[in-house]
Design a protein around this nucleic acid. Structure first.
Lengths: 99, 99
DNA sequence: GATTTATTCAACAATAGCGAACAAATGACG
DNA sequence: CGTCATTTGTTCGCTATTGTTGAATAAATC
């Protein structure tokens, strides 16, 4: 999910908005520490790269660390997607729609 | 993925075929121990229930332990599915299709 | 009691997750 | 000018949960 969030965020992919994104989509709290830990590990495995951004004028606060998904990262996301898509072919879409 | 495999397998949902299913779909080895451990934990959380089957005549070997996904289990699978589906809306389908 | 089919066990590695500490900018204000 | 409060983000240390494996055990059939 972190990889997917990075892809969605494109140029604005750094820790804070990734957390915001996942909070919104999963509908529950996500601590920043978790996100950074995951990003760290993903980078260690070569699935993402990172680079420090320049501090934006008129803002204050520390510089951002931007992340990009590598080719290999994208490959793995797609492989997982294919596996899941296959698996939930037989899954009832959503129980709702009663009336 | 274990939950999804159980759903797919329906009446034949027990350890061995779950492992076979995941091996096939993920395209790599999956030890049986992993599967049973996962099933154990899922049962502890109330996402699946289990019941011992009768030994099939003309077969030999220990009785099977069948699993069924609970209502809550199904709910959670669907929630995760929705989250992922949303997340990978912006994902390029597959890099292939070059010529 | 050999063989087959399946499950359980014990241990360790990896990932998820959290709260608090730390870092580096900006802008006030004396 | 300094230095300090504020803001925005990242890093650290630690616990909990999951993933994974190989070997042991169990319960059938012949």
């Amino acid at each position: 999910m972190v990889l997917l969030a990075l892809i969605r965020l494109g140029d604005e992919a750094y820790g804070v908005p990734v957390a915001r994104e996942l909070r919104a989509i999963r509908g529950r709290e996500v601590a920043l520490g978790s996100i950074y830990a995951a990003l760290e590990r993903l980078e260690g495995k070569g699935l993402v790269t990172s680079s420090l951004g320049e501090p934006t004028p008129e803002r204050g606060g520390r510089a951002r660390r931007f992340f990009r998904v590598t080719k290999e990262g994208l490959r793995q996301v797609q492989a997982t997607r294919r596996a899941l898509t296959t698996l939930w072919r037989s899954l009832p879409e959503h129980e709702g729609g009663k009336a």
